[in-house]
Computed example of a mutant assay.
Amino acid sequence: MAAMNQFRTLALLALLSGLIVLAGYLLVGDETGLYYGLGFAAVSSFGSWYYSDKAALAAFKAQPTPREEAPELFERLERLSDRAGIPTPTLYLVPSESPNAFATGRDPNHAAIALTKGIVDLLPDDELDAVIAHELTHVRNRDTLTQAVAGTLAGSLTFLGRILTLGALYFPMARAGGRRGNNPIAILFLLVVGPFAAGLIRMAISRTREYAADAGAAEITGNPLALVRALERLEEMGQKVPIHGNPAFAPLFIINPLSKDGMMTLFMTHPSTDDRVQRLKAMAAEIAGSTANTKELSSSV
């Protein structure tokens, strides 16, 4: 299952990069645009790889927290990181009452986990462990990099669409010699179809990675039901106190941090909490069944 999730994610990222290359071709009007599109995708990916953590932490005013200010949180993070088999990420606290958490960083050696004040105050120990384990799984699976690259590529495609549209509106004769010129189909693709497709691909990547992180949290803690309780509690409280920040970083959070009112429901980056809960309950039932079988074998021996 993990290998299939990785393959699916790579395929979706390749498709997203392909849309960027196609956008470059449509923007320039000939084969040169393919190289421009490829270069643009490469530069965007590198920028997101190197700077995404700084941008995400700054967007929500996350502050690095010294060990002496939160010794219990540090011990908790170190213990769970050891179970996950990764270096302990840097701990950040977000000054928000909205209960949520996210992980960021280009690789496990340059990772950070941010917890809001609201989630630290709200969750009991076992549920906070489950949330941190979920974020550590994102780090272990390098989902933080995947989400950053996917978000940047999707934004780049939208940016290219705006360039072509502005060019068609304000410089209609500048491209008269181009093979495609101001092709209305190209404009439609770059302005509407491309960004919409990129958004759908990004949502598919995000949802796939959330399911995998939930499973990882259950593995690290051995307690899927703790994450069930945490998700239900966060879902209820998070909508009462939504967090304020750049919506481009919404896929990073364990629970959708934005309001679900109005148009925001059309582009949800997270699977439904009910679906995640049902999957985790199925995992808990499997663990319970396996434990019962082990006890029966032990007693019979």
Rank of each mutant, 00 (worst) to 15 (best):
A23L: 07
L280P: 07
L234Y: 07
D121Q: 13
S299C: 13
I201C: 13
V28W: 08
M263S: 02
A168D: 15
I113C: 08
R202K: 14
A213L: 08
R229C: 02
R142H: 10
T265F: 08
I205E: 04
V193Y: 06
Y92W: 06
A130G: 09
A230H: 06
A112F: 00
T291I: 02
I20G: 03
M4Y: 09
Y35C: 02
A176T: 14
P87R: 00
P89R: 00
L27V: 05
I163H: 11
R279C: 07
I243P: 03
V228Y: 11
T221N: 10
G18Y: 08
N246R: 07
R207C: 05
A226M: 10
V43C: 11
Y25D: 04
A148Q: 01
P89S: 04
G85H: 09
A212F: 02
P247A: 07
Q278F: 07
A150P: 02
L10V: 08
I185C: 03
S299V: 07
G33Q: 10
D82Q: 12
L190W: 08
R67V: 13
E68L: 11
T104M: 04
T221C: 13
P99K: 00
T88R: 09
L123C: 12
R83C: 04
N5Q: 08
S17L: 10
S290I: 01
Q239T: 09
D126R: 14
G199T: 13
Y51C: 00
Y36A: 15
R180H: 12
F171I: 09
K295M: 10
A250Y: 03
I163N: 06
N5E: 12
I185T: 12
D30Y: 09
Y51R: 06
S300F: 15
T273D: 02
S45T: 15
A103Y: 00
F171K: 09
P108S: 08
E232Q: 15
L93P: 01
A204P: 02
P224S: 02
L297G: 00
P64W: 05
A284S: 04
G178Q: 13
I20T: 15
D129R: 14
G262H: 08
T269A: 13
L160E: 04
I243C: 05
H270D: 12
R8I: 06
F102V: 08
F189V: 10
L188T: 11
M263P: 13
L136V: 05
D143E: 09
A204R: 11
L34P: 06
